[in-house]
Simulated assay, not measured.
Amino acid sequence: MDWYSIVKFLHVVTATLWVGGGFVLFLLGLLAERAGNIDDKLQAMRASGELGGRFFAPMSMLTLVFGLVMCGFWVGFSDLWVVIGLAGYATTFSIGMFIFKPTGERMGAMIAKDGVTPAVLGVGQRMMRVARFDYAVMLVVVADMVLKPTPHDIGILAGMALVVAIGAILAFAGARRLVPSTA
């Protein structure tokens, strides 16, 4: 076995843990949202917040490091699929650090101060909407890593752009409100 295979394996494992683990939490939150189950939704958000800095951030950074090592030693940085992957990584990392992290901290402080209020649920709802866009970008990055499109792969590139556009629509178009039941 060569070094490239080892680094590629580590890149794929850390990416799987990062993207797959986050997707499971996103899915749990989405299912709770659709069912109107506030407790389960808050539990998914709490787990996301607790795992964000301890698990997801390190896995995302390791994914990047192993990818950069592969590019630096073997692949290079000039292929379109590498550029798309890095842009997608920068997007999802920025969403995590500049939206999810501070929003989760703000929600935790709000809950500690006033409990679960409609304001907390509103903040959580907005966070879930952004997560839809984040996972559309992640899906494109995964497809990009597997398909490795060139500038001539217009269909693949158009499909990737469509996935990001649909993710943006799902994230930022009108959404259901999650409110405590009165029954």
Rank of each mutant, 00 (worst) to 15 (best):
G36Q: 07
I84P: 00
F77I: 01
T63E: 02
K41M: 10
M45Q: 13
G88P: 07
S48A: 14
A44G: 07
L86M: 00
E50P: 06
A44E: 03
S60D: 01
M70A: 09
M45Y: 09
L68D: 10
G72N: 03
L64E: 10
V69Y: 10
V75Y: 00
G76H: 04
G88M: 08
G52I: 05
A44M: 11
D79L: 07
G53C: 06
C71R: 02
A32H: 02
G88S: 10
S78N: 04
G36D: 07
M61K: 04
G67K: 00
F73K: 06
K41D: 08
E50Y: 06
E33K: 13
T63R: 05
A47H: 11
C71P: 02
G52C: 12
L62K: 04
G52R: 02
W81T: 07
L31H: 04
L42Q: 03
L30F: 07
R34C: 12
D79I: 06
L30W: 13
V82G: 00
G53H: 05
G72D: 04
F55D: 02
L68F: 11
R54P: 08
T63W: 02
Q43H: 09
W74C: 04
L68V: 13
R54G: 10
A47M: 12
Q43V: 09
F66K: 11
I38N: 12
Q43I: 14
A47Y: 04
W81C: 07
M61P: 04
A47D: 14
L64D: 12
S48T: 13
F56C: 06
